Amino acid sequence: MLAVLNVLMLALNIYWWIIIASAILSWLYAFNIVNAGNQFVDSIGQFLYRATEPVFRRVRRVMPDLGGIDLSPLVVLLGIFFLQQVIYIYLYPAVQRAGI
């Protein structure tokens, strides 16, 4: 069971960094620092968009419209942090006590 929790924590950490990379790339696109016509940059952007947009879309549905400010990545990062804390504080000790 500890192996499952460790894999879950690793997946949450990887998704954390995917969200950070997506936010940074969106800023680079917005300020015209990267060339959107570059095939390599476009493929990275498409991957990050496809990996994050389904989660961001669900968060945006429940959040109020703030104009040009998109806080959905921040909300998702806070959700990931909350899940990690629940795993560290409650699930790891419970699994260790149970001896699973």
Rank of each mutant, 00 (worst) to 15 (best):
L2I: 15
L2P: 13
L2F: 15
A3N: 15
V4M: 10
V4A: 12
L8T: 15
L8S: 14
M9C: 00
L12P: 05
L12A: 04
N13M: 09
Y15L: 05
W16Y: 12
I18F: 04
I18P: 13
I19R: 12
I19H: 10
S22Y: 14
A23W: 14
I24S: 10
W27R: 13
W27E: 08
L28W: 12
Y29H: 11
A30M: 14
A30S: 14
F31L: 11
I33S: 07
I33R: 03
V34M: 04
N35V: 00
N35E: 08
A36D: 06
N38M: 04
F40V: 11
D42Q: 15
S43L: 15
S43F: 14
L48W: 00
Y49H: 11
A51Y: 04
E53G: 05
R57E: 13
R57N: 11
R57M: 10
V59E: 00
V59F: 04
R60A: 00
R61Q: 09
V62H: 07
V62G: 10
M63I: 00
P64D: 12
D65F: 13
G67F: 07
I69E: 07
D70I: 00
D70K: 10
L71R: 01
S72E: 00
S72R: 05
P73L: 02
L74D: 02
V76A: 13
L77V: 05
L77G: 05
L83Q: 12
Y88T: 12
Y88S: 12
I89V: 14
L91R: 00
Y92W: 06
P93C: 04
P93T: 02
R97A: 10
G99Q: 01
I100M: 05
